[in-house]
Amino acid sequence: MTNTTAQIEAQPKLVALFASDVHLHPSLPRTTEFFFEFLRMQAHLAEQLYLLGDLFEYWAGDDDMETAYHQQVIAELKSVSNAGTGLFWMAGNRDFLVGERFAKAIGAELLGDIYTANIAGHAITMTHGDAQCTDDTGYMQFRAMVRQTGWQEQFLLLPLTERKTIIEGLRKGSKMEQKEKTAAIMDVNPEAIKQLFLDHHADTLIHGHTHRPARHQHAEGLRYVLPDWECDIAPEEMRGGWLAIYENGEIIFHHLNGDTSSSFTPQINTPP
């Protein structure tokens, strides 16, 4: 996935990068290393890096930062912001408990659930994507509960080990429930997407969450869906990548296998 120096010099200036659903975890060493390589070889060249949720498999609270693995992730992200790249963090459905302590440690700005910016001539609205899966009513009820400040404050008062046990139980339960749900229910709702375009006057929408990488043409504009990352399975099934915007306004998908394209061919889908 590493570009040659000649290729880098031939490209227009790299303005912004977008990635999501990396699902970092100590049990996924190859995925972790591929993400670190992305930070070292790509993010250092960009003016901005937007991480749009689920960077971690789960996050139990900022008091879990001291593990050796999390310290390694923090050091790699901090090197990006130290290099002058603006680092922006958006919560996903797995790491919404990331707080100011973590953001300060990596030199990032925490974004809300929806963020709009003008980048290289595009009016871009970004979101993780789970809030637009409105057909999954059970998940939407759960999401509304755990995103409440009061619920989070009470949860974070529990011992860290207890929180992790609860989260693991929720993840197992979620996987069981997903077997009973149709693919359509777990995808974004078309009307919710349309409303995002209209409410934020966007011509481009970028999100992750669904693990269905693609470029969609809507009447209101273009929608880019970011891929999830999985590099610890067979090489031929490896998936992942990022979206790049250059100073000339060009928007390009970069696959982990080194391919580039203006649209993603959907890969093997896994539940979000």
Rank of each mutant, 00 (worst) to 15 (best):
G121R: 13
A131S: 14
L157Q: 15
R147E: 05
H255I: 00
T161L: 10
Q42C: 03
A144D: 09
L51E: 12
T2R: 12
M126R: 06
E33L: 12
N269S: 08
L77K: 09
K172F: 11
N93T: 00
A219F: 06
E100S: 11
L110Y: 00
G129R: 15
I245S: 08
A184I: 09
N248S: 03
A183Y: 05
G241M: 06
E168Q: 13
M176D: 12
G221P: 11
R40H: 07
S262K: 10
E162C: 11
A234N: 13
Q148V: 03
E47K: 13
G241P: 03
T5H: 15
Y139L: 04
T270R: 11
S81K: 14
G112K: 01
P227C: 12
L156A: 03
S261G: 10
I124W: 03
L111F: 01
I245Q: 09
H200V: 07
N269Y: 08
R223P: 10
E180F: 04
A131C: 07
P26F: 13
S79P: 01
A68V: 12
S263Y: 13
G241H: 04
Q11H: 04
A91F: 01
L77G: 03
P159S: 08
P272E: 08
G258A: 12
T5I: 10
N118D: 09
A214Y: 05
R40N: 13
E100K: 04
L14P: 09
Q11N: 10
R101A: 10
G169R: 12
I74E: 00
I233D: 03
L87V: 11
D199H: 07
W242S: 01
T137H: 02
F18E: 10
P29H: 02
A117W: 00
K172Q: 14
A91C: 04
F253R: 07
A83Q: 14
Y50I: 07
D136A: 02
Q152F: 10
S174I: 02
L110I: 00
F88N: 05
R40P: 04
G53D: 06
Q71K: 12
H128D: 01
G86H: 10
Q48L: 02
K13P: 04
G107D: 04
G169L: 05
I114Q: 10
H255F: 03
F142V: 00
R163Y: 11
A244I: 09
T125S: 08
A16G: 13
L87T: 13
L256Q: 15
Y69S: 05
G53P: 04
K164L: 08
D54C: 04
A10M: 15
I268N: 08
E230A: 13
K172C: 14
F102T: 03
F18Y: 14
H122F: 06
G107A: 05
Q152G: 07
H70M: 01
T67G: 05
A103F: 08
E237V: 00
N3P: 15
P190V: 08
D62F: 07
K164F: 10
F142T: 02
H128W: 02
H209R: 07
M176F: 13
Q195E: 12
